[in-house]
């Protein structure tokens, strides 16, 4: 029995198992809370709180007006916050159990700048699209909304173009 559990936890699961798992959990979440799974809207609220700590009041920025009601409800027990904290904690536990956890070496300044730039673009894009791969793609398509399919088409196109650019850059630095 112990062997089977260890095998289950440390071996590579096929993609479809993950897909079915996400579907089942998302259905449960939607049934219980009335909202599909999302990540980046809550991350935006984290941004508000962080900005407040360093003395920046994003509440006054016109583009952020739509977050004010959510911001008023926000605390540790806010649904989206629990989901995000649970996500990070779950990934951490899963990595430790499967012995894949490790503090990674930073390969250089270039990696730091690229990571920051990538994060910035992802965050900006997620706000423009009102969601990320999770909120806009998974949530959109599963709730039969057309915007999920549009998101899929452009995300695939964007990923393809991004890969071509990356391969050219990688060949240059090799």
């Amino acid at each position: 029995m112990r062997k089977i559990i260890v095998k289950l936890l440390t071996s590579d699961w096929p993609y479809w198992v993950g897909g079915v798992g996400i579907a089942v959990i998302n259905i449960g979440l939607l049934a219980l809370t009335g909202k599909p799974w999302g990540i980046t809207t809550t991350v935006t609220l984290w941004g508000f709180k962080l900005a407040n700590i360093i003395g920046v009041r994003l509440e006054n920025v016109e583009a952020f007006r739509e977050y004010l009601t959510r911001l008023a409800d926000f605390n540790f027990w806010y649904g989206g916050n629990l989901l995000n904290v649970g996500l990070i904690f779950g990934v951490l536990v899963s990595a430790i159990i499967s012995r894949e956890f490790r503090f990674k070496k930073i390969t250089g300044k270039r990696q730091v700048y690229l990571a920051l730039l990538g994060g910035l673009l992802m965050g900006y894009g997620a706000r423009l699209a009102s969601g990320c791969n999770v909120g806009a793609l998974v949530g959109g398509i599963s709730s039969l909304s057309f915007h999920g399919w549009l998101f899929l088409i452009f995300a695939l196109g964007g990923a393809w173009v991004g890969c071509q650019i990356m391969y050219v850059l990688l060949r240059r630095v090799m």
């Binding site: 990674k104 070496k105 930073i106 390969t107 990356m166 391969y167 990688l170």
Partner: peptide, 10 residues
Amino acid sequence: LGEVCPVPLF
């Protein structure tokens, strides 16, 4: 070391 997909495979 420290590189993520798809850099190692590429």
